[in-house]
Design a protein around this nucleic acid. Structure first.
Length: 293
DNA sequence: ACACAGGGTCAGC
DNA sequence: GCTGACCCTGTG
């Protein structure tokens, strides 16, 4: 891969494992929206970026080489060898061989820890379009405006302070429903320093998970998502209804498996690659309707 | 139309 | 440990 800068963009050439559609539509982030030309525009770290793919070249529009090095390189997990990971997972069984082949180009983003916490609190017992709308609404009404791109205004994800002090009216309008108190209280805990979610990255996975579960609205599944998407922990296996069904269909051949049992089975089988395996399987299952009722 | 589920979690037993 | 309730809305 070679990298160069051209007017307002950074170009990554000859990239094997960078497929915007797979990255942004595998459900790990709720802030990227497709443009009419097939590219995606989103916000992370208070920055607006547009991502387009042409052949084997990835165009990161609206950034600079310096900003890429300082932020996007880590955000897009560019220092992980996904080809090697796919190859390792593909060797494990035919299902993962198919899933990694289908999902080639998927990457696990390194998102902001607090944003991941709030986003996945919103995700519980919810559906993806509604989650996206809620995150968008909260950002638009409580986040800092960070500029305009292609005629649209963009806003940073709200700070803990903003979410802690937000009016019930804003929460009501955001349609987060009963999750309002979860979001507000988690934000208060972060804002007042009762817990520093950002410091959990330094803890072993099990300890970080134990801490996260103390947060209101955070249980076994949501904590795994925060660990994987916001705290750089790959040895987790978030089990939601889709993953549950695909695991039951592919590995258990029967329904109503205990969630903890599925989680443990996956962790033993996939080890340090569990989080990556989960993403390939989740994306594969959703795209193919595996386990769909 | 209208029940049901949706990237689960919590409170109450 | 288990069970039902839960904001709200897209889906069939």
């Amino acid at each position: 891969m070679k990298i160069y800068q051209e007017q307002g963009a950074v170009v990554l050439t000859q990239v094997q494992d960078f497929e915007p559609k797979h990255i942004f539509e595998c459900g790990q982030s709720f802030r990227w929206t497709p443009e009419e030309d097939g590219s995606y525009t989103g916000v992370a770290g208070g920055r607006i970026l547009n991502v387009a793919k042409q052949g084997e070249d990835v165009y990161l529009n609206n950034t600079t080489l310096e900003d890429y090095e300082n932020f996007w390189r880590h955000y897009f997990d560019m220092d992980r060898n996904y080809e090697e990971i796919r190859n390792q997972l593909a060797l494990m069984d035919p299902h993962l061989q198919a899933a990694t082949e289908f999902g080639q180009g998927l990457r696990v983003l390194n998102q902001d820890s607090f944003e991941a916490a709030i986003s996945f609190i919103i995700s519980s017992n919810n559906n993806i379009p509604r989650i996206q709308r809620a995150v968008e609404y909260l950002s638009r009404h409580l986040g800092e405006p960070i500029g305009e791109y292609r005629g649209k205004d963009y806003y940073a994800f709200p700070t803990p302070k903003a979410l802690a002090h937000a009016s019930s009216e804003v929460y009501r309008q955001s349609n987060v429903g009963y999750r309002e108190s979860y979001i507000r209280d988690t934000s208060i805990i972060q804002h007042t320093g009762q817990m520093d979610i950002y410091k959990l990255v330094n803890l072993p996975t099990a300890m970080a998970k134990k801490e996260l579960i103390r947060l209101p609205g955070v249980g076994p599944k949501v904590s795994d998502c925060i660990l994987l998407f916001g705290l750089e922990k790959e040895e987790v296996f978030p089990v939601d209804v889709w993953v549950r069904r695909v695991m039951e269909e592919l590995y258990f051949q029967k329904n109503n498996q205990d969630l903890q049992k599925i989680r443990q089975y996956a962790l033993e089988k996939f080890g340090l690659l569990s989080g990556l395996a989960q993403q390939y399987l989740f994306y594969y299952a959703r795209a193919h309707g595996i386990g769909r009722k």
